[in-house]
Computed example of a mutant assay.
Amino acid sequence: MAPASSRGTGRTGWLRVDRLVPRHRRCGRRAGEKGGSLTGPSPVDRGKPGSKIHVLSEGAGLPLVVGVSAANTNDAYALKPLVKAIPAIRSRRGPCRRKPGKLHADKAYDHADLRAWVHRRGIQVRIARKGIDTSEKLGRHRWVIERTISWLTGYRRLTIRYERNANHFLAFLTLAATLTCFKKLRKTTT
């Protein structure tokens, strides 16, 4: 934080009136000049800072694995770590099941090497293909993961990222996934 000015009260604070300057003046552009925006950078800018939540859920929407990545990275990089992190599911008889039967994903995960990698693990691939499949076909399955993400972002701590450390944010995300599973499974058993 900048040192206090001689005009102020002599202490540093959050609101410094002498430091408040309109955005277009700070950027060296006048309001309305081409290239200058009074609302800030574009929200769809691919170079934006921030984080992205990745969730792998089962068919009913219970989160099995969660992850956090930078907002400006491709979603496809998160698929392998999420699939590898699927916990073993205890069955009534036989060995523990470590892989799902099918994997549904949207067009962001449409890469030939990812399809081959998932297929080699013995999982049926249901990834929408860019330019071929429509969103209507995948929409029957996509709403499940969208609902799961809305359950997780229902916790105030995850709506806006307050933590600087990604490990802390991931810990809160994991806690939210655990609480979500507990609440949903408690409803089904009672």
Rank of each mutant, 00 (worst) to 15 (best):
G10E: 05
E58F: 04
G67C: 01
R26V: 10
G36K: 01
P87C: 06
K137C: 03
G122P: 13
H54P: 04
L185H: 00
A88W: 00
T73L: 11
H168S: 05
R129N: 09
I89C: 03
K48E: 15
S37E: 10
L152G: 05
K184D: 05
R147G: 03
R115G: 08
R142G: 08
I132M: 03
E136H: 12
V68G: 00
E163R: 01
V125S: 00
P49F: 04
V66D: 02
Y155K: 03
K102P: 02
A4N: 03
E146R: 14
R147C: 10
A108P: 06
S37I: 00
T189V: 13
E163N: 01
R186D: 09
D113T: 15
K52T: 15
L64Q: 08
M1Q: 06
P87L: 08
K34E: 12
S37N: 13
K99H: 13
R98T: 15
R142W: 09
V66H: 02
P41N: 07
G67N: 01
R115Y: 06
G36W: 07
I132K: 11
R19H: 15
A76Q: 13
S150Y: 10
D110H: 04
K107N: 05
R140L: 11
S57K: 04
K183I: 01
G40V: 00
